[in-house]
Design a protein around this nucleic acid. Structure first.
Lengths: 223, 223
DNA sequence: ATTGCAAAGTGACTTTTGTCACAATGCCCG
DNA sequence: CGGGCATTGTGACAAAAGTCACTTTGCAAT
């Protein structure tokens, strides 16, 4: 039980919650482990629990019937997923897959709803949490609809650079992974990266991208 | 004050709320009227109030610097907008424009937050409301990223048909409006509609689209 | 070392989408 | 009833994105 609690204390929406609320959550939580590549949730299936990521990373995505994938989000430790279907009772909106070996805290639906009803602070914290998701998705829509692959890729590079500066230990993305986030195909990413290199904006080594001209990338992002 | 209350009673997330909560909301609400085409909020600006649509329709959209528009949502009476920035204190995520003459109920930030803190039911109701938004945006991303204009347009026609069946008095969309919802340009919509007509799926008269082969459209939607 | 494989690079081509520039059509209003 | 204007229709292109089919690279495990 003590472990549940220490995990919860590192969760984004738990910051500032009273001890009693965290204790209540800890009481209903159950630990689950999954190995790299395992599918945690499938789009359209019913959801029994909300998950908190204690260790590892989880990819949330939609997949087209031709097999193309659009990544919606990658959940890092302290984040959560499968929250939407818990609160509205509907099916899972997307697939969840373990990108690494992961450790999850499962909060089963009915008990969780009870805790939320009794703790307005929790509901408000989750509300704030959802606003972040909504903003993120709106930005994704903006990029997909209003920007070229070039622009989106420039944006991704900048975002990754910023994350690295903040000290987030993000393992480098493969070009295929970038493509899935950007809503395009691997070849486009390869070609566009090359074109950035030709323009002197970045340089490419296997697995490492070095940014030389951040301002130039920012300009590219506009497209 | 009585008017505020009757308006609130028709709002989606107020269904099931205790009278006292609705009364508290009514007390802090202020009526505002805007005429067709007026801009209610601009992306990036700070937000002082959440708005409930009492009469008319409001378009929520992002606009690229080349002037292309992506509609995120159209809010009908009983719906609300500008909710995200109120709960996280950030800037407005998108533009809001009155599509018709509208009557709004403004709920100013600080008092609203206080009501939410004291009424867990309200927070939970808003939470459920947000889940709907999140699902909607995820679907939009799926369409933009994983479907062709043809598929998206087929989906829009089906959605409009369903809305009409439910008796929603939706004024017919112009092709330019459809384009803004689908993340494309007017000409693409015109051509794709023509191609649907050529396939016998629909027929076109000025301002009216008649669906002949719904199953065929459903198949198109997959693309 | 050799092989085995995932990741990356690339050319040639097709499809889809977007742009531009007009023409045609109706509807509304004076 | 005639003009003006928003909406629609279209052809000719241009640009962006995606597909296919390989090749190349370099790490990693036997």
């Amino acid at each position: 039980m003590e472990t549940h609690r220490t995990i919860l204390q590192r969760v984004s929406f738990c910051a500032g919650l009273p001890d009693a609320t965290i204790a209540a959550l800890a009481r209903i939580a159950a630990l689950r482990e999954r190995t790299t590549g395992s599918i945690i949730q499938i789009e359209g299936e019913p959801a029994e629990a909300m998950y908190i990521v204690a260790r590892g990373r989880v990819k949330i995505s939609r997949i087209s019937h031709q097999g193309r994938e659009q990544v919606l989000n990658v959940i890092e430790p302290g984040g959560h997923f499968n929250t939407v279907p818990i609160f509205d009772g509907g099916p899972c909106p997307a697939n969840a897959e373990a990108l690494t070996d992961v450790m999850l805290l499962a909060l089963p639906r009915d008990p969780l709803l009870r805790v939320a009803e009794e703790n307005a602070v929790l509901a408000l914290a989750l509300l704030r949490e959802f606003t972040g998701r909504l903003r993120h998705l709106v930005n994704l829509i903006d990029e997909l609809s209003l920007h070229t692959v070039q622009g989106r890729l420039a944006g991704l590079l900048i975002a990754q650079a910023k994350a690295a500066e903040r000290g987030e230990a993000t393992p480098p993305l493969t070009q295929a992974e970038m493509a899935a986030r950007l809503g395009t195909v691997r070849e486009m990413v390869a070609r566009t990266l090359k074109s950035f290199e030709a323009l002197g904006l970045i340089s490419l080594e296997r697995g490492v991208i070095t940014i030389h001209d951040r301002a130039g990338l920012v300009k590219m992002r506009e497209e």
